[in-house]
Write a protein that binds this DNA or RNA. Structure first.
Lengths: 257, 257
DNA sequence: GAACGCAATAGTGTCGACACTTTCTTGACG
DNA sequence: CGTCAAGAAAGTGTCGACACTATTGCGTTC
């Protein structure tokens, strides 16, 4: 299993041109981003134990920043920590995902209502502009861009609610479901219903129709959930099947994913 | 199996008492709890810079577990981290508190509605029993008990929503506002309106009246907010305007809290 | 006397090492 | 053959040390 240790595939050993050996003083931050990316992209697989030494070697830093990053990721629900046994990749269950989407729906709908109450016209217009600026090219872009733009749209609503805590929570939830959303976007089931949804939501915002907008948002999110479930199944298959059945004989009780 | 440690020579016997020098393997966890307590009790004051060396000395561990704990606390919003400058105690603004309460209200109301939809009768009855078991003695107990019982009540609703993510979020929010809730409970403004609120909420739950229950919850929370604001002001005064002027010689610019 | 360096100090970020725990391997025993 | 225990190996938890950065204090210049 260690063979496959090319985890840090794309991670540049050190892109700093001038300061080659210089300690960067933000290893922790970079480790955090890199590991999170590994999680998002399934390079680290659900339920898997995380080997700190291995990680630290592949990232070219010591274990200290690795552990700091893992601690942060643990607080955010990406990984879990078992004393004296180490960090494990969150085991991703379908229902766990549904729970997250449900929470997201709750928060976003509330944010929309608050936005309708509180945001002034120019702010609402920012939302309209944001969407109008990208709506035409939206579906014809690489998945990462689509994802970022979609998240940006929803986050903007959260921001216009005027409550930074809502923004923080939504951002945290987004981070945790990003990997699956990315998969869903690449999946054939992804269609352009999303676009009309967003447009309708903008319309409701402009009219300050809190109830209708919240309803649209809820439906918008629910709509993606079912599509996402299929995408998730396919993704898990892709991750766990291709390997070799050899791994299956591991004695360790494998938690269902 | 531990015999193995005796190989060669018994390294110098610890001169201090045995229990003292033993590495406990959970310094990090204890540091986390201790520091959080310091924050909750205002021993570390809002806006203050946290000195890792000093903390590590006073807790009797090295900086490593201290930093791990602080990282966790940062993810949870208790402290903030500025690169190369260190950790700072969350500067607690009144509006920041309002944001948190608002988020709490959103999540709890949603939880209540979900509970009404999903929980079976025996579960609803658990909520009723929980409250009936404590309602009589509720107001005549030490603040810590009142606080724990109140949190338990609200958390039980979250649990009955069937969504663990909601439970987790609410627990996290509770942890962040606990210190202020504790102050509010001890404050003269604390009255027993809370009790009738809870009873009414239980009634709504039994009737599965989602809308009314959510409304009651929202009002219940809003009611405490205003009382809390006054309590907060008093608490901050107590913290920043200590009895004697001895501390006043510090030139540190105090951020407005 | 105020602004500006510039050395001294304090404090954070990271590292390598080592103690302790868990997991794997091996070989004796039934 | 399977079981089990002792030792070896692997891995985590914590430490003390040091590199680097921010801050403070002091002397110099205008």
């Amino acid at each position: 299993m260690t063979e496959q240790a090319e985890t840090g595939a794309d991670s540049e050993p050190s892109l700093t041109s001038d300061a080659e050996t210089r300690r960067s003083a933000d290893s922790s931050e970079r480790a955090y981003n890199t590991i999170r990316k590994l999680l998002v992209e399934f390079k680290l697989k659900p339920g898997e134990r995380i080997n700190e030494v291995q990680l630290s070697r592949s990232l070219g830093v010591s274990r200290t920043p690795i552990r700091e990053a893992l601690n942060r990721l643990a607080s955010e629900g990406f990984v879990s920590l078992t004393p004296n046994r180490g960090f494990f990749v969150r085991s991703l269950s379908t229902e766990g995902l549904l729970d997250l989407y449900e929470l997201r729906s709750i928060i976003e709908c509330a944010a929309f209502k608050l936005m309708c109450e509180r945001a002034d016209d120019s702010e609402i217009d920012r939302l309209r502009q944001y969407w109008e600026a990208i709506v035409d090219v939206y579906p014809n872009q690489p998945p990462d861009i689509i994802l970022a733009e979609d998240e940006g749209f929803h986050l903007l609503i959260a921001e216009l609610s005027g409550n930074p805590e809502i923004v923080g929570q939504l951002a945290s939830i987004n981070a945790r479901i990003r990997f699956i959303r990315r998969i869903q976007i690449e999946h054939p089931s992804h269609d352009r219903a999303q676009i009309t949804s967003h447009s309708a939501i903008v319309d409701a915002a402009v009219k300050r129709d809190a109830e209708n907008g919240a309803k649209l948002l809820r439906e918008h999110i629910e709509m993606t959930v079912s599509a996402t479930q299929q995408a998730l199944k396919d993704a898990l298959l892709r991750v766990f099947a291709p390997d070799n059945g050899a791994e299956l004989k591991r004695r360790r009780r494998t938690r269902d994913v």
